[in-house]
Design a protein around this nucleic acid. Structure first.
Lengths: 213, 213
DNA sequence: TAGATTGTTAATCGATTAACAATC
DNA sequence: TAGATTGTTAATCGATTAACAATC
């Protein structure tokens, strides 16, 4: 509940903690100190302790943190213990690839449907799910309690499609369209912006000396 | 040259400026003030002026900024006026989708090759480029002056493949594998981490009240 | 010239790091 | 108990915002 005021910076680091703790868990390591984590994750031990303490004490003084417990608690904070029903909107190259590749089930997301307006794609099977016509999307969202939509439509239709999805009841949008969606506050939007990411790489490659330091 | 010490936060905002300026340009708008941009981009005018001034004065007092000029200058800062030769490493779902979908040419990236270790994929055409066997990659990088690799291999092979790519002469890695690559400083790595992004969305959907405010 | 808007300095805010007392 | 390491407060650092003089 009070998790509401946690800063964006802290939230942004949680998935990375979760990933490293998952690795430690898989290696059978039971216990970890902020100092150990600091070394493997290349962040300060201080930051690690501060971050965890936003959510209450997960550790024991003189001992450290229990890996499995910490892993599970961070998973809960991230909401991975809840099931999210998800659809992919537009079955183009990227939509299809995400459907096949993402392994949504692993993290509590249930891939329920994929939609496109191109009739040539209707019925095509993507990861056991047949592509459905766009017209069916409203009814589908309501009948199947869909809360998250993966938006892979082209930039020009992104705003209209996003608004339609929200109107039909979706609560979160994972947006791959290269545009900023302005949605009501109650709707969560997570932008991927692949082009922006590639431009940052371009900047860094162009401005690096090519020399290690 | 002195662009070297520009903070990560500023660089991270440049692609977004570039995108909005491109839109203004396409609308035929010639002139924009930091105040105008502030309104459409939802950031402070002060931040906009500070950001641009890291690179020297692009504006004119009393007038504002010339859209086309500013757009081109930011493009240059991002290195988009240089050509980058790029390969995609592993032609799985995501690799193929990126090859078809990304429109690399638009931003100065030249898609030169795509590689996989699966013989069933050899010769398959992705956006006019045939999939090549992984064994040819070293020679190909040198012969074709490849500087950027898009890494879409599975997590388990990511580190080994990345090291091989760097050994063969690649300078930048656009990394989609769900792992942190530790590369020499001279190598630029831009991580996408799709899972992390989806987990953040999960957090936000779970912690939102569902009420606008 | 007067008005507008930048470039830039100074003030504020927030996030990170350091330090250490609490305690397992 | 002594040693280790957290939880938490205080200090520092950096980034954002405000303010205004410079100037087109």
């Amino acid at each position: 509940m009070d998790a509401k005021e946690i800063s964006r910076a802290v939230i942004g680091r949680l998935p990375r903690y979760f990933r490293y703790l998952g690795d430690l868990k898989d290696q059978g390591i039971e216990r970890v100190s902020s100092q150990d984590l600091s070394t493997i994750m290349q962040v300060t031990a201080s930051q690690i302790r501060q971050d965890f303490n936003h959510f209450g004490g997960f550790g024991q003084q003189g001992y450290g943190y229990k890996v499995l417990y910490l892993y599970e608690e961070i998973g809960k904070i991230l909401g991975l213990d809840h099931k999210h029903h998800l659809i992919i909107v537009s079955a183009g190259n990227l939509g299809q690839a995400l459907g096949k590749y993402m392994n949504f089930e692993r993290r509590g997301f249930i891939f329920r449907g994929i939609f496109d307006k191109n009739p040539a794609l209707y019925g095509k099977i993507i990861n056991n799910i047949a592509v459905r016509p766009m017209e069916q999307i409203g009814a589908f969202i309501k009948e199947n309690n869909i809360d998250i939509a993966v938006l892979t439509v082209p930039r020009v239709s992104a705003v209209a499609v996003a608004e339609m999805l929200v109107f039909e009841g979706v609560r979160g949008i994972w947006n791959f369209a290269d545009i900023d969606l302005k949605m009501p506050d109650r709707i969560q939007v997570e932008n991927v912006h692949l082009s922006d990411s590639l431009m940052k790489l371009s900047y860094n490659v162009n401005n690096s000396t090519g020399i290690d330091h």
